[in-house]
């Protein structure tokens, strides 16, 4: 006799191959939920926010456990790779410090030992810490279904809070992150009330590529988290910097513009006004820091 019970009325399956997983999804996709780390899914089931009839544990699917890098193809992160594994992967700490930084602040050590970057983006919380960094790095989601694979630019991935452009019969297999170009650098900063174990009130990632001689900005990416229904790039703000030499004044303008482009809401964590202010501050700080990493002197 035991008093335990399932957290929900669902069937649990743990397929060992991508093919089987996709076959199951093509039949039952609409009622199924993918379980990778479970750090978002399990509380959602427990609290009755969702009640899937099938929970599909993808941790045994080999393709979803890949983690590799080479110069040409870039980084491939299987959708079921736990964040803690990713953080100890040398190529990431060496070449994708912005991503390492973003992933290192998600949840706690316990959460990072289970949670995955795939789950972080599929859960599509506006505050997902990995999203702004991935947007800056030009990441693509590799999505598979019975009918084949497709690539989704991360810019087109997030639809609404909790909603992505992945279809019910599709599975996120991996995330591809191109190798950052030479002379590029960036960072992610967020604001939380507590130091750790908190959800971003606002997060900003900036990523700059410079022309090595002129030190002018060749490419600029700035992405925001927790200040709109989805993580988003602020193209207007980015445009202000492209082709320019960095000055203190221009950074201020960019920060202001980023704050303009944000669409924050007021909730129990903060007011929209404060979030907008944070976007300004964090944009400014990430830009300064990125310039510092690139060894650019900012003209006053």
């Amino acid at each position: 006799m035991t008093s335990t019970r399932s957290i929900g009325k669902f069937e649990y399956k743990k397929p060992g191959s991508l093919r089987t997983t996709l076959r199951i999804l093509s039949n039952k996709g609409a009622d199924a939920r993918i379980l990778a780390g479970g750090t978002d899914l399990i509380p959602q089931i427990k609290q009755g926010q969702i009640s899937p009839s099938l929970v599909l544990d993808v941790k045994n699917v080999p393709e979803l456990n890949r983690l590799d890098w080479n110069e040409d193809r870039g980084l491939r992160i299987g959708a079921a790779v736990p964040l803690s594994k990713l953080l100890t992967f040398v190529a990431i700490s060496e070449r994708y410090s912005i991503l390492a930084q973003a992933c290192s602040v998600i949840g706690s050590m316990q959460i990072r030992n289970r949670g995955t970057i795939g789950g972080n983006i599929c859960n599509a919380a506006p505050s997902a810490d990995s999203a702004p960094a991935l947007l800056c790095l030009g990441a693509r989601a590799i999505v598979a279904s019975k009918n084949g694979n497709r690539k989704i630019n991360l810019d087109d991935f997030f639809m609404a809070p909790g909603k992505t452009s992945i279809g019910a019969d599709e599975l996120l297999v991996e995330i591809e992150v191109p190798t950052p170009p030479a002379h590029s650098a960036g960072c992610y900063m967020r604001h939380t009330t507590r130091e750790e174990m908190d959800i971003a009130v606002a997060g900003v990632a900036s990523f700059l590529t410079i022309a090595p001689r002129s030190k002018k900005l060749k490419e600029v990416r700035i992405a925001l988290g927790a200040v709109a229904p989805t993580p988003l790039r602020v193209h207007g703000a980015e445009a202000l910097l492209i082709g320019k030499s960095v000055t203190e004044r221009i950074i201020e303008e960019v920060a202001e513009e980023a704050a303009e482009e944000a669409k924050p809401i007021s909730d129990i964590r903060a007011s929209a006004e404060y979030r907008r202010e944070l976007v300004k501050v964090l944009t400014r700080r990430t830009l300064w820091k990125s310039c510092e990493m690139l060894g650019i002197e900012i003209q006053r």
């Binding site: 009330t193 507590r194 130091e195 750790e196 174990m197 908190d198 129990i268 964590r269």
Partner: peptide, 16 residues
């Protein structure tokens, strides 16, 4: 009461 989890009823962690 709106903040009924330990994520939104924030108590100091060791880092605070």
């Amino acid at each position: 009461v709106q903040n009924t989890t330990f994520l939104d009823y924030r108590m100091p962690t060791a880092t605070d």
